[in-house]
Design a protein around this nucleic acid. Structure first.
Length: 319
DNA sequence: ATTCGAGTTTCCGCGGG
DNA sequence: CCCGCGTAAACTCGAAT
């Protein structure tokens, strides 16, 4: 195996030991072949593929010094996403001509032709990888923006990054907008992390329209066969309760209503958000801290009608 | 690819504080 | 008038020939 020659693309180190070290250092994830990426934009290390590896491997986010080193690097190399994109492009996108001629126009020997073929292959690999990198960078920015707008915890952002990364690796992006997939990733991640946001809430902070968002979300879930369980209505309760300035008691009451309702099976097939909204309303009545249906409707984005229908059912289930 | 069913929303109308 | 309530028609989404 003396294909040290293919390393000529970078023109630097050619010793075998250097190469091995580089293998480790370029952060190619053994699991999915994707590369691990340190995003220093917000001072945190987002390792998309390592997120997956964590499951089997425990913690493997890479040593501190590497994150730091990368942070330094990033800080230096960019001041905004566009600049980074430019730099990436400028630095790496090179094309190797298809003609098997050397600089003088002479034909190459067959051995050299083979070598050139290898070079083209590798060059192409790096080039496309780089385009994906740029794509990812922008997407991560979007994910970050939406997550913080929605007040989602850090784990959600990481999960969303993992999802996006997977979508990218499986070539799910062509024909779909980065925004759309990023939005879908955030939504899915929020649900997986038990801190769901309703479709409407996510749609508000997204730059794409709701219809495309839903379409993309379904597509992503199907293609990546993501396991995203139906949201637990109770997980909406605390947030809604606090937005309505309701007491702990109401919150607890709402939970009770939901659990008993779930036991009697009346909740199946109903939208979790609607149930949560109804539970809040019903609980507010039971505890004599009434809020109006329209108030609940406002903060939950559930129509008053649905609240009416559900809360009756909830009360029946308790009786 | 169209149609069907369940859930949900929109719209409107009614009565009571 | 606003709040709660009910209804019918329209819409959305996922499933099934």
């Amino acid at each position: 195996m003396s294909d040290t020659s293919i390393r000529t693309y970078s023109g630097e180190q050619t010793s075998t030991t250097e190469r091995e070290e580089e293998q480790v250092d370029t952060d190619v994830c053994p699991e999915c072949g994707g590369d691990v990426r340190h995003d220093a934009e917000h001072g945190e290390t987002v390792c998309a593929d390592c997120g997956l590896v964590v499951e089997e491997d425990g913690i493997d986010r890479g040593p501190e010094w590497r994150a730091f080193d990368s942070a330094e690097k990033d800080k230096k190399s960019r001041v905004g996403a566009p600049t980074t994109n430019m730099m990436h492009d400028k630095g790496l996108s090179t094309n190797i001509g298809w003609q098997n001629k050397d600089a003088y126009g002479n034909s190459l020997s067959s051995r050299q032709r083979q070598k050139m073929q290898r070079l083209r292959t590798w060059n192409e690999r790096f080039r496309t990888r780089d385009s994906k990198e740029r794509n990812l960078k922008q997407a991560l920015g979007e994910i970050e923006r939406m997550s913080s707008a929605l007040g989602l915890p850090k784990e959600v952002r990481e999960t969303a990054s993992v999802i996006y990364r997977r979508a990218l690796n499986e070539d799910l992006l062509p024909g779909r907008s980065i925004e759309g997939v990023a939005t879908a990733a955030v939504y899915a991640a929020a649900r997986q992390m038990q801190t769901p946001r309703s479709i409407d809430e996510v749609a508000v902070v997204s730059r794409i329209d709701e219809m495309e968002f839903k379409r993309t979300y379904r597509y992503i879930v199907r293609e990546l066969s993501l396991e995203v369980a139906p949201a637990d209505p109770a997980s909406y309760v605390p947030r809604f309760a606090s937005e309505l300035d309701l007491s702990e008691e109401v919150e607890r009451q709402a939970r009770d209503l939901l659990t008993t309702a779930q036991e009697t099976g009346v909740t199946s097939g109903k939208s979790p958000v609607g149930l949560a909204a109804a539970a809040i309303y019903a609980a507010s009545l039971l505890t004599n801290q009434k809020v109006t249906q329209s108030a609940v409707s406002d903060v939950t984005d559930v129509s008053e009608v649905t609240i009416r229908n559900r809360y009756q059912e909830l009360l029946e289930a308790t009786a």
